[in-house]
Simulated assay, not measured.
Amino acid sequence: MSQPFSAATGTTYTLCVFTENTVGLLNKITILFSRRRINIESLTVSETERKGVSRFTIVIQHEIREEVEKLVRQIRKVIEVLAVFGYLNEEVVYNEIAMFKISTLSGAKPLDIEVINKIYKAWVVYWGLDYVVIEKTGSLPEIHDFFNYIKPYGILEFVRSGRVAVSKSSKSLDDYLPEAEWEYYL
């Protein structure tokens, strides 16, 4: 199994795009990246605290900051986009989630749950008859380190989420989108 981690170079940018929740918007946004030949390293979309407002968290690596700034300006022109922010890693708090399905068949190398929990801060979230599922949250290097640790045990499946991130700024979504009366989730 090859290692499922990016080998891209350049500066890492996290783009946070707040949008109306409409059909086809994902395509409108991702095509802007394709046209500029910028690869999306990870993409996470979810609802925000405001009903009807979605948040796209898009991670890219690119060498030329001016091209990223042009991309952000282009995204802002999409009608359904309410706000767009570009951040460097030090400007956001972020994490990812990874899940590992590991064989526990007889004859397999026994797992050291204490090392998994205490050293790697990972947790068994499902224990089946012949496999376990372990969840690891953290930065990409932390997940990569755990991947290398757990690989000799026999990874049956591996999946990693996109980045979830919030700005280190004290501002909230209300500071950027105050003009309308929004319905909030309770």
Rank of each mutant, 00 (worst) to 15 (best):
V81K: 05
K151R: 07
S46Y: 02
I79E: 09
S161D: 04
G52W: 13
L71Y: 10
G107S: 11
A108Q: 13
R163M: 07
E66P: 00
T104N: 07
F146D: 05
N21H: 03
L82R: 03
W182T: 04
I155S: 11
I29Y: 01
S170D: 07
F158E: 14
Y185V: 06
L88R: 03
I116Q: 08
S106R: 15
V45F: 03
E114R: 14
G154Q: 15
L82A: 03
E90H: 13
E90T: 05
V115G: 12
T57F: 10
V23M: 12
A180E: 15
G86R: 13
S46W: 01
I58K: 05
F56R: 06
L43T: 10
Y87V: 03
E66H: 10
E41V: 03
R73K: 02
I119W: 04
S172L: 02
V81F: 11
E114M: 12
S103P: 02
K121F: 04
L156D: 13
L173W: 07
V124Q: 12
K70H: 00
V166I: 15
P152K: 08
V78Y: 05
E96Q: 06
N117T: 01
Y94S: 12
F146C: 01
T12Y: 13
S2H: 05
S54C: 05
L88S: 00
E157P: 07
V45A: 09
F18L: 11
Y184I: 14
G138K: 03
K70N: 03
E181R: 06
A83C: 00
E47L: 12
I97S: 11
T137G: 02
K51G: 07
L15W: 01
